[in-house]
Write a protein that binds this DNA or RNA. Structure first.
Length: 711
RNA sequence: GCGGGAUUAGCUCAGUUGGUUAGAGCAAUUCAUUUACACUGAAUAGGCCGGGGGUUCGAGUCCUCCAUCCCGCACCA
C-alpha cells in the first residue's frame, strides 16, 4: 500500500498535481479522448468578467458544470466544455477607472482602450487560475475572450447580416440615458427603486382649463398636449381643443387636449401632460394622435448632462433639479400650483452604477427590431424565433417554471437599443455619419463623413457565444460537431440578458437553437439569507474555502441541498462537513488496501457478498437516473450516504469478521475492492481530485476521468 | 395589476410521477475508546410538513381559499 494513506487526506498535496495529470493527458480536449468517445456533448462556460475573481456564484456554476461534463465524459461522450472570459464593457471600464483613479478624458480613445485591454488581459489570469483550482475540466486550448479577434469577426458578421436583413435600424430615437454612466442602456438594464417623490399639481398658465400632475415638472417645458380619459366628464368638453399657454417666465406652449383610453381617471387629476421627447409612453401617444410624425425632430429640454436646454433663457443651463425649484417657485408666485404631495413611486436607475435614468432623444442610435417579419425565416419575427423553440420543446428550460417567465418577458419586449457610449467594447462596425445621416459601409462614404464611435451592448457579443467560440462565421468542423450545444447552465438572473439573446442570435444567424437544455441555478446566499456582496462584508471567498477545506469539499458543499432554480445558503460548517467526508473516503481506502494486500483473483463470491453488490447496483441505477434527469444534488446525497453509512459503517464493519474467516476472506476482499472502485467512479464527477488520486494508487492504467461510468 | 417561489426537526435545507415508520448536515443528550478513520462509532431525543376546506383507499406531494415572507414583469402622469 502506498504510504500516503497512512496520514489524513491533504487536498493541497493532491489537487495541483492531479490537475496537471489531467491537463497533460489532453483529455479536456475531446479530440484527444479515446476513440470510443463518439457522440458529442458540448457546453460553453458562461464567461466570467475578466476583471473578476471567483465568487460563490461562479464556484457553484463551475461545480455543476464540471459535474455534468465529467459525468458525460465517463458516459463515453465526446465532451467539450469551452472556457472564456467576458470583456463586460461597462463593468470593466468602470472598474478600471476606479482602480487607476483616472478619467478617460485624459487620454485619446485609442490609448484608453489599449490600457483597459492590457488591464483586462492581466486580471484575466486571476480568474482562470481560480477556475482551475476548483478542478474544472475545461478545454483550455479553445479559450476565448468576448473581445478577441475571432469574436470581433463574429460580431461584425452578425451585425452586417442583421443590418442587411433590416433587423437593425438606426436613427434618432428615445433612449434610456444613464446620467452618471453617460451612456444609453437597454430596458432590462434598468432597475426600479421605490422612492418618495413630490407630486406637483398645477396649470401651465391661468387661461388653461385643466390641472395636471407631475413628479417631473421640468419636463413639462416640452409638453405638446394634455391627455384625458375619453369618458372623464370633468374634461370631455375640452377634448380636441388647443390652448396657447404662457408657461414658466412666459414660454409659449401650444397644448392640445386629447382623449385616450390608457389614461387613469383616478391618478392625480386624471389629466396627463404629454412630453414626447422625455417619455416613451408620451411619445407613442403623441404619435398615435398625430401630434408628431415619425422622423420629426423632438423638442428636447433636458440634455445628456442633465441640464435644461432649448427653453427660456432664465432656465437654460440649469441642472434639471435646480430648474424644478425655479419652476415651482414661479408656479407659486403665479398661483398656479394647487397641490404638493409626497407619493411613493418607482424611480428608474441604472442597474450598474445606480445613476438616474433620463428618457431623451438621441441620434445615431442602433436598434434591433424584434417585430419585423424575416423572409428568410418564414416571415417570423425575432420575437417569434425566440419564443418558438421553447414552446415546441426544442429548448427545455429547467426548472420549467422559468419558461413562463421567459414568455412573459418576450411578450413585453421592445426593440433592443444596442448603441453604447462607452469606449471599451466592440465598435459598431462600418458605421459613418454626416450630421443626422448614418451610412453603413466598409469604406468612408465621403471625406465629410465621420466614423460613429459608439460601441455595442456587451450582450450583443455574448449572444453569439455558443457559436462564436466554435469558429463561426467560418464553417468549421467544431461548429458542425458541437452546435447546438447540449446544455447551457447558468444563474436564473441572466435568463433575459443572456439566454434570450443567445436564442435570438442563433435562431436568426444559424437557423438553429443554441442549446437543447437550459439548467438554471439560484443565487448563493449567506447563512442569514442575505445576498453575498462585498459591501455587506459577508463574502465567503471560495478561494479561501478551497485552500482550507479542499476543492472536493467545496464542490460537495455547493451542490448538496441546492435544487434546481432555487437559491441556496452556504456556511463554513458545510465545507467542514465534506472535508470530513473526503477524509472518510481516504480512510476507507486505507482499510481496504491494508486488508487486501494478499488478495488473489477469485470467482467465488459468497451469497451475502452478492447481496451487497446487488444493493450497490441498485444505487448505481438510481444515481444514474438522477444524473440523467439533472438531479445532481440528489445523486450526490445518495452517494454520500451510501459511502459513509452503508459502505463504511456497515459493510466494512461486518467485513472485519469475514476477513478473519478463511472461507470468506477472498470473497470479502473482492467485494471490498469492487465496492471501493465503483464508489470512486460514482463520486468522481463530484469529488474529482481525491477519487482520481486514490484511483492512481490502485495502480490503474486508465485515468478515472475517462473510466466508463458503472452500469 | 399580472405571474412565480417559499413556509417540513432548535438552525440550514432535501423529499423525483400521490404509496410502508417524513430524511440529511449542523446543533443537543447518553454511551463506547489500545479502533481504517475523534475529521470516529453506536444509540436517544426532536415534526398536527404555515392555517382552513376539498379530491382520494391513501396527501408533505394534487385542487381551493387564507396568512406571512421573497422574487420577476408591467404601470409609475
Amino acid at each position: 500500500m502506498n504510504e500516503i494513506f497512512l496520514s489524513p487526506y491533504k487536498p493541497e498535496e493532491t489537487e495541483g498535481r492531479i490537475y496537471k495529470v489531467w491537463v497533460d493527458s489532453g483529455f479536456f480536449n475531446p479530440e484527444n479522448l479515446p476513440s470510443e468517445h463518439v457522440d458529442p456533448f458540448s457546453m460553453v462556460l458562461p464567461p466570467p468578467n475578466v476583471t473578476g475573481t471567483l465568487h460563490m456564484g461562479s464556484a457553484l456554476m463551475l461545480a455543476i458544470e464540471d459535474i455534468i461534463i465529467r459525468y458525460q465524459r465517463m458516459q463515453g461522450k465526446k465532451t467539450l466544455w469551452i472556457p472564456g472570459t467576458d470583456h463586460a464593457a461597462i463593468a470593466t471600464e468602470t472598474k478600471f477607472l476606479k482602480d487607476k483613479k483616472i478619467s478617460r478624458n485624459d487620454y485619446t480613445r485609442e490609448k484608453f482602450v489599449q490600457m483597459v485591454n492590457e488591464y483586462a488581459l492581466d486580471t484575466q489570469q486571476t480568474i482562470i487560475k481560480q477556475m482551475k483550482t476548483l478542478g474544472a475540466s475545461l478545454d483550455w486550448s479553445r479559450l476565448a475572450f468576448t473581445l478577441d479577434d475571432n469574436r470581433k469577426k463574429a460580431v461584425e458578421e452578425a451585425f452586417m447580416r442583421m443590418y442587411e436583413a433590416g433587423l437593425i435600424y438606426v436613427g434618432e430615437r428615445l433612449v434610456n440615458w444613464d446620467l452618471k454612466g453617460q451612456t444609453t442602456v437597454a430596458d432590462d438594464e434598468i432597475e426600479y427603486e421605490s422612492e418618495e417623490s413630490m407630486l406637483y399639481t398645477f396649470k401651465y398658465s391661468p387661461n388653461f382649463p385643466i390641472e395636471i400632475a407631475s413628479t417631473l415638472p421640468e419636463t413639462k417645458l416640452a409638453d405638446v398636449a394634455v391627455a384625458v380619459h375619453p369618458e372623464d366628464n370633468r374634461y370631455k368638453q375640452y377634448i380636441g381643443k388647443s390652448f396657447d399657454t404662457k408657461f414658466v417666465n412666459g414660454i409659449g406652449l401650444n397644448i392640445k387636449i386629447i382623449a385616450d383610453e390608457s389614461i387613469d381617471k383616478e391618478f392625480g387629476t386624471g389629466a396627463v401632460g404629454i412630453t414626447p421627447a422625455h417619455s416613451k409612453k408620451d411619445y407613442d401617444l403623441a404619435l398615435k394622435h398625430g401630434l408628431i410624425s415619425k422622423n420629426q425632430k423632438l423638442h428636447q429640454v433636458i440634455s445628456e448632462q442633465g441640464k435644461i436646454i432649448n427653453s427660456h433663457k432664465s432656465l437654460n443651463d440649469l441642472k434639471f433639479k435646480e430648474a424644478r425649484e425655479e419652476i415651482i417657485k414661479w408656479l407659486k408666485e403665479n398661483n398656479l400650483l394647487t397641490k404638493e404631495e409626497k407619493i411613493s413611486h418607482e424611480v428608474p436607475r441604472a442597474q450598474r452604477g445606480g445613476g438616474i435614468i433620463l428618457t431623451l432623444p438621441k441620434r445615431h442610435q442602433f436598434f434591433v427590431d424584434v417585430n419585423k417579419p424575416i423572409p428568410e425565416r418564414d416571415n417570423k419575427s425575432l420575437k417569434e424565433l425566440m419564443r418558438e423553440p421553447v414552446v415546441q420543446g426544442q429548448i427545455k428550460i429547467l426548472p420549467e417554471r422559468f419558461e413562463k417567465v421567459y414568455f412573459q418577458w418576450i411578450d413585453n419586449l421592445r426593440d433592443w437599443n444596442i448603441s453604447r457610449q462607452i469606449w471599451y467594447g466592440h465598435n459598431i462596425p462600418n458605421a459613418w455619419y454626416k450630421e443626422d445621416d448614418v451610412q453603413i459601409s466598409k469604406n468612408q462614404p465621403g471625406s465629410d463623413w465621420k466614423p460613429i464611435d459608439d460601441t455595442l451592448d456587451t450582450w450583443f457579443s455574448s449572444g453569439l457565444w455558443t457559436f462564436s467560440t466554435l469558429g463561426w462565421p467560418n464553417d468549421t468542423k467544431d461548429l458542425k460537431t458541437y452546435h447546438p450545444t447540449s446544455v447551457l447552465e447558468t444563474g436564473y438572473d441572466i435568463l433575459f440578458f443572456w439566454i434570450a439573446r443567445m436564442i435570438l442570435m442563433s435562431q436568426f444567424l444559424l437557423g438553429e437553437v443554441p442549446f437543447k437544455t437550459v439548467y438554471l441555478h439560484g443565487l448563493v446566499r449567506d447563512e442569514k439569507n442575505r445576498k453575498i456582496s462585498k459591501s455587506l462584508g459577508n463574502n465567503i471567498d471560495p478561494v479561501d474555502m478551497i485552500a482550507k477545506y479542499g476543492a472536493d469539499a467545496v464542490r460537495m458543499a455547493m451542490i448538496i441541498g441546492t435544487s434546481v432554480g432555487n437559491d441556496s445558503k452556504i456556511s463554513t460548517e458545510k465545507f467542514k462537513a465534506y472535508k470530513h467526508f473526503a477524509n472518510k473516503i481516504w480512510n476507507i481506502t486505507r482499510f481496504v488496501l491494508e486488508n487486501t494486500k494478499d488478495y488473489k483473483e477469485t470467482d467465488e463470491i459468497a451469497p451475502k457478498h452478492k447481496d451487497l453488490i446487488k444493493n450497490l447496483e441498485d444505487l448505481i441505477v438510481d444515481v444514474t437516473k438522477d444524473m440523467d434527469e439533472f438531479r445532481f444534488y440528489m445523486a450526490a446525497e445518495k452517494i454520500y450516504h451510501y459511502v459513509w453509512h452503508e459502505f463504511a459503517d456497515k459493510i466494512i464493519e461486518e467485513s472485519k469478521n469475514d476477513l478473519r474467516d478463511e472461507t470468506l476472506k477472498k470473497s470479502a476482499q473482492k467485494t471490498l475492492l469492487h465496492i471501493l472502485e465503483q464508489s470512486l467512479k460514482l463520486l468522481h464527477p463530484f469529488m474529482p481530485f481525491i477519487t482520481e488520486e486514490i484511483w492512481q494508487n490502485l495502480s490503474k492504467q486508465q485515468l478515472l476521468m475517462v473510466t466508463p461510468w458503472p452500469k
